[in-house]
Design a protein around this nucleic acid. Structure first.
Length: 423
DNA sequence: TCTGGGGTCCTAGGACCC
DNA sequence: TCTGGGGTCCTAGGACCC
């Protein structure tokens, strides 16, 4: 038997974060919206019970929101990111190694802890997170990461587990796998679900029993690995070192379509500058920049246009104004009159640590420019995102994201820290 | 179906080389 | 002009995830 792995996953994470600082949100239905206040991406148990689905567009459920008094929050990523740090700090003492898998999930390596009662150990870990952060969690324990994901889902779904499901026993595993559909398995999306359905494979248990060779033919190495993991044979490991990121993107949708190139340039200016800021925050430079924009694909009765331009950055850079110049060039070459653009973005690839970047022969000394960038970052950090912007960004910002109901930055801005009044 | 932004990994196919 | 096999690298697109 391979070493046990646990997945600790926060319940309704964004909603739980909002509740940590606003008690009026407790016990009532709450949803948190995506960027631009577009659709519901987190739901409290009460909201789920009212039938609100993951990703549901908010404009389709206005009636329901009114009728049931559902509380609606814009997303506040500064808050969720800061609380994540505290959650991880609470988990840390419970294992030697762990992998932060997403903003609300951490894989914990229990190798060397097998002599303990791991269920009790996991309960203590949950308790610690709850006490330090108020965030409720569930834990799944199993021999592989894929099974730990399912164990966690079982712990969330079935009260019998009381928040911690241990799938190390063959018997319980069999029982749980038969209860989940194939599409619930980590790594099985819509396309693969359909392929498998055609083969009469509908439950996680049936997928586990699929011949390995057959699975490879149907879904490549990815599916083969999933099947192996469902059998308890690890084909992935806990990644304890944060991998070097390969790309980053700043993209956005426009509420009303853009038909004017200057408006698009204004938006793209903002994205290019933001992309540069992200690069500098991570101490990286980029070797390639892609700009894209396209019309609304959901409205096929309107004229469609989609454009992408990829430019190679030489020398590699993280200078916002340079990125902007490339992005503008890309837009200019791709622009066509007569279309309503609803989405655009800037993507950076070929990332490398800034101090390891290759120098070019005739590279100018751009120390002044990098000092300018540092200064801009500082000013914008202190006085707000748009304190200093290139003139091409314009002043109207009609493409500005909607965020009508954002909670304060309780933990990351000194002016917004909640005050406790003595009586 | 309505619809969000930001990521990763895998595969197929073309260009190019020996 | 017709004829081979085998390898690498790059890119675009699909699939999936949170």
């Amino acid at each position: 038997m391979s070493a046990p792995v646990a997945l600790i996953d926060c319940n309704n994470y964004y909603v739980s974060c909002e509740r940590a600082f606003d008690a009026s949100l407790c016990g009532v239905p709450v949803i948190v919206l995506s960027n631009n206040d577009g659709c519901a991406i987190a739901r409290s148990a009460e909201a789920k019970a009212l039938g609100i689905r993951m990703g549901e567009p908010v404009h389709l459920i206005r009636d329901k929101i009114q009728k049931h008094g559902i509380r609606v929050m814009s997303s506040n990523y500064a808050l969720y990111g800061d609380i994540q740090r505290r959650v991880v700090a609470a988990i840390e003492p419970f294992a030697r190694d762990f992998e932060i898998y997403s903003i609300d999930e951490t894989f914990v390596d229990f190798a060397g802890f097998e002599h303990l009662d791991l269920v009790a150990h996991s309960r203590a870990m949950r308790e610690q997170v709850k006490q330090w952060t108020t965030i409720p969690t569930c834990v799944g324990i199993a021999p592989t990461k894929t099974l730990a994901k399912l164990a966690n889902a079982a712990a969330k779904k079935n009260p019998i587990f009381d928040g911690v499901a241990d799938l190390r026993s063959e018997e319980i595993r069999r029982w749980v796998l038969d209860q989940f559909e194939v599409g619930d398995v980590w790594g099985i999306g819509r396309a693969t679900t359909e392929k498998l359905a055609a083969l009469e494979i509908k439950t996680a248990g049936q997928l586990r029993d699929m011949a390995l060779k057959h699975s490879r033919g149907v879904g490549g190495v990815v599916l083969e690995r999933v099947v192996a993991e469902l059998r308890g044979v690890p084909s992935s490991v806990i990644e304890t070192i944060e991998p070097q990121r390969k790309g980053m993107a700043v993209t956005w949708s426009f509420g009303s379509p853009i038909t004017d190139i200057d408006m698009l340039m204004g938006a793209v200016t903002q994205y290019a500058m933001r992309a540069g800021e992200k690069l500098r925050q991570h101490g990286l430079v980029a070797g390639r920049l892609t700009v894209f924009f396209h019309t609304n694909r959901h409205k096929q009765d309107r004229p469609q246009y989609s454009a992408t331009r990829t430019l190679s950055l030489q020398p590699m850079t993280n200078d916002g104004l340079t990125l902007l110049a490339y992005a503008r060039r890309g837009i200019e070459s791709a622009w066509r009159e007569g279309y309503g653009i609803t989405k655009a973005g800037v993507m950076l690839e070929d990332l490398m640590e800034a101090d390891r970047r290759p120098r070019t022969l005739f590279e100018e000394d751009n120390e002044r420019r990098s000092r300018l960038m540092v200064a801009m970052d500082e000013v914008n950090g202190r006085f707000g995102k748009f304190a200093i912007v290139p003139a091409s960004q314009g002043f109207k910002r009609q493409w500005k994201a909607r965020s009508d109901a954002k909670s304060p930055n309780y933990t990351t801005r000194i002016a917004e820290v909640p005050a406790v009044k003595a009586r």
